[in-house]
Design a protein around this nucleic acid. Structure first.
Lengths: 247, 247
DNA sequence: GAATTGGTTTGATCCACATCAACATTTTCA
DNA sequence: TGAAAATGTTGATGTGGATCAAACCAATTC
C-alpha cells in the first residue's frame, strides 16, 4: 500500500455556481433547496479535489475538517486492524457523502481510497454546520444523509452476521445494480471498479469464494461475468437467492 | 415473539428540570450545554416512558417521530429478514441514544427491545432540530452522537468481517467492560442482560459457540463465568486474544 | 512481442464453526 | 411449590468457506 499523496485542488469559483449547475444536485446536498439557497451552498463548497486512482481523500487518524461529496468516480472506505488485516467498510459512488465518521472524534477513523480517478467537492464542516443552522432544509437533509449511512451499515451487519456466501454476493450485486440505476446508468450491465479481493473483504469472504460464487451464478444463468464486466441476466433469480434454503 | 405493547408515559414536568437534574447529563444530550441552555432542553424533553422487559420503544416500519435517550435499563436493536432470521445490531445502555435510524426515511428500520425494565426520555425530533438550530453546542453534540454511531457500526463490520470467534467474543467483552466503566460501574464484574443467543446473533455466531468460547476463556483464566455473571480476571489476556494467530 | 505484474479462475484439502443431540440449570408462573 | 419453559453447557459429527497450490488471463512495460 503506497503512502497517501496530495490530491490536486481546483478552484471552482471559476466554474461559476458549482452546486447550482451540478448534475448531482438532486441526490447530493442541494436536495430540496431553492435556487437562492443553493447559491449559498456555492459559497461554501469552493474547492474540488481530483483524486487519482489509489490515492485517498483522507486516512484514519487524520484530523477531521471537511466532508467530501463524491462528484465523479468511485471510492472504497477501509479500516485497518493493528495486525494488518483490513476490512472494506463501503463502496461509494457519485452523489455519496464521505467523511462523516470523522465528526464524532474530530479525526477520521477510516481510509477513503479512490478506486478510479475521481473528483470530490470539499465541504468545510464548520461552514456546513453554520449554514445548516440557517437553512432548515439543509439541516434536515444532512441529518437524513447521516441516518441513511447508519441504516446502510445495519444492512451490512445483517449481511455479515446472518447470510451465506451466495446470499451476500447476490445482495451485493443487487445493491450495486440499484445504485447504478438510481444514477441513470444501466442496472443490468456495469463494470466493477473493485477487485475480487476488495469485494471479498467487504462481504467477509475470501477472494476465491467470491470468484467461485460468480462462476456459480454464471452457470445458473443469473449473471454474465467477464472479468470486471457484469451483466445481470435474471435479477429475480438473484433476488430469490436471498433467503433461500441452503442447497 | 409477542406483539408490541404500549409503554407507560410519565409526565416529567412534575420531576422539575428533567435534564438539569439528570445524572446522565454528562454523557447524554446536555453535554457541554450551560445551565440556561439545559433548561431549554427540559422544555423539549417532557415525557419519559417506562418500557418493560420484552417490550419495545419502536419497531421496524413504524412511523418515526422521536429519538429516545436511554435513561436506565438495557436495550437491544434488531433487524428481521423476510425469512425470519434476525440479527441483533446493537446493545444499548444508559446514556445511549436510540432511534436515529428512523430519520432518513421517516420510519424506523429496526426494533428497539428492552432487555430489562427500562426508562427512556422521549425527544420529539422536530423540537430537537429546532433547538439545535438555536444552540450551536447542541447541534454539534447531536452530530457527534450520530457520527459515533456510524463509527461504532464500522467496528462491528470489522468484527463480523475479519475476526474469528474468540476475537469477536473478546472484543465484545472488552467493549462492554469499557462501557460499564465509563458509566461508573465496575469494568471487571457485571451481569449480562442478554442471552447467549442474542450475543451470538450480534457477533455472527451460534449460541453454542458463544457458550464454548466463554468456557474456553474461563479455562484459560481470562474470565470467570457463572451464567450471566461475568468477572474479567485478565483484561490484558483478553486484549491479546485480539489479533493473535489462530491456535 | 517477450517479459513482468496484478488480478482471476479452478481444483484439492482442511478446519472453524455450525448442526444435531442430550442433558443441566435457572426462571417463570399456575 | 412444583411443573413447564427457557436458557445454558457439552459432546459428536458435518460442512461451508478458508487455505494452499497451480494455471490462466489481461494490461503494462521494456
Amino acid at each position: 500500500m503506497s503512502a497517501p499523496k496530495l490530491a490536486k485542488v481546483i478552484d471552482i469559483h471559476a466554474l461559476k455556481n458549482a452546486c447550482s449547475n451540478c448534475s448531482l444536485r438532486e441526490m447530493c446536498l442541494p436536495t430540496g433547496l431553492s435556487h437562492d439557497e443553493i447559491e449559498k451552498l456555492d459559497q461554501m463548497v469552493y474547492t474540488r479535489k481530483r483524486v487519482k486512482r489509489g490515492d485517498s481523500v483522507y486516512r484514519s487518524e487524520e484530523k477531521f475538517g471537511s466532508l467530501y461529496a463524491l462528484r465523479s468516480g468511485f471510492f472504497k472506505t477501509t479500516l485497518v486492524m493493528e495486525d494488518g488485516r483490513d476490512q472494506v467498510t463501503g463502496f461509494h459512488m457519485a452523489g455519496d457523502m464521505l467523511g462523516m465518521d470523522g465528526i464524532g472524534s474530530d479525526q477520521h477513523s477510516c481510509n477513503a481510497v479512490a478506486l478510479e480517478d475521481s473528483e470530490v467537492c470539499v465541504i468545510p464542516y464548520a461552514r456546513l454546520e453554520e449554514l445548516s443552522r440557517e437553512l432548515y432544509v439543509l439541516q434536515q437533509h444532512f441529518h437524513k444523509v447521516m441516518s441513511r449511512e447508519i441504516v446502510r451499515e445495519h444492512g451490512v451487519m445483517l449481511l455479515l452476521g446472518s447470510m451465506r456466501a451466495e446470499e451476500r454476493l447476490a445482495a451485493f450485486l443487487l445493491n450495486l445494480s440499484q445504485r447504478f440505476a438510481s444514477r441513470g446508468y444501466s442496472p443490468s450491465e456495469f463494470n466493477l471498479r473493485m477487485t475480487r479481493e476488495e469485494i471479498g473483504s467487504y462481504l467477509g469472504l475470501k477472494l476465491e469464494t467470491v470468484s467461485r460464487t460468480f462462476s456459480k451464478f454464471q452457470e445458473d444463468g443469473l449473471i454474465g461475468v467477464q472479468q470486471k464486466n457484469i451483466r445481470i441476466l435474471d435479477s429475480n433469480g438473484l433476488k430469490s437467492v436471498l433467503g433461500r434454503d441452503p442447497g
